[in-house]
């Protein structure tokens, strides 16, 4: 994005947006608001890792098992972010979801392609095909949390905190959202990296946070910090 953004930059300062809760899943590890929620060495398979996190999180949601890897990761990250806070005070239409990744739904695309590779066993599966769009994870998060506001899925080669901030800032400036989940949900084979944050207006936030975690100003630097430090 161009750097000539002076008007937006000024408004950004006035907006005073905060990261009021975050979750980072990466390398068999789950961090929620600076605290280690889950870690286990030597899990080699993504499926085993994400199932262990689901079990530990103790959310009873059988549909979880039907989801594709990206949806599983995004869903659990959103659950963990929202467990420590609440969005119930917001109107469902005023809560947004802005997610991004590098490979779109390629991991599941390959799975669907497997079902149509051979003409002798040609059985495309609707429950696989439906996940061959990156924004289905947004749908899953919205269904679970009754979120009905602005939603978009963006693609960038690598994590782009500035892109997310610019997009989410515009939503707040135009009064399209009062709270917004935003982040990065990337899964390819057994590798996954997901960051989910809840962004709220400093003056209108719904909770005072958990001990030991200080709200962070919502900006690209802090997003980059969370995704690289943890």
């Amino acid at each position: 994005m161009a750097d000539a953004m002076l008007p937006l930059y000024f408004r950004k300062i006035n907006m005073d947006l905060l990261i009021t809760s975050y979750c980072h899943l990466h390398d068999n590890k789950v961090i929620v608001n600076d605290r280690l929620f889950f870690y286990q060495e030597n899990i080699l398979k993504f499926a085993d890792f994400i199932k262990s996190v689901y079990k530990q999180e103790n959310v009873n949601y059988p549909k979880f098992y039907k989801m594709d890897p990206i949806s599983k990761v995004g869903f659990l990250a959103a659950e963990l972010v929202l467990k420590q806070t609440t969005i119930e005070g917001y109107h469902p239409e005023k809560v947004g979801v802005v997610l991004s990744n590098s490979s779109s739904s390629l991991d599941t695309d390959i799975a669907h392609n497997e079902t149509i590779k051979n003409r002798s066993s040609y059985f495309p599966s609707p429950s696989v095909f439906v996940y061959t769009l990156p924004n289905i994870v947004i749908g899953e998060i919205c269904i679970k949390n009754k979120i009905k506001g602005e939603n978009v899925f963006l693609i960038s080669e690598t994590f782009n905190g500035k892109l997310l901030c610019d997009y989410v800032n515009e939503l707040f400036i135009n009064e399209r959202v009062e709270a917004c989940l935003c982040g990065w949900v990337e899964v390819m084979g057994n590798n996954c990296n997901a960051l989910m944050v809840l962004v709220e207006h400093a003056g209108r936030k719904q909770n005072e946070g958990v001990p030991g975690f200080k709200f962070l100003p919502f900006n690209a630097e802090n997003l980059n910090l969370i995704i690289t430090l943890n």
Partner: peptide, 12 residues
Amino acid sequence: IDALELIVLLEK
């Protein structure tokens, strides 16, 4: 979606 999936099961 499950209903559609059952149709695939019968065929496969």
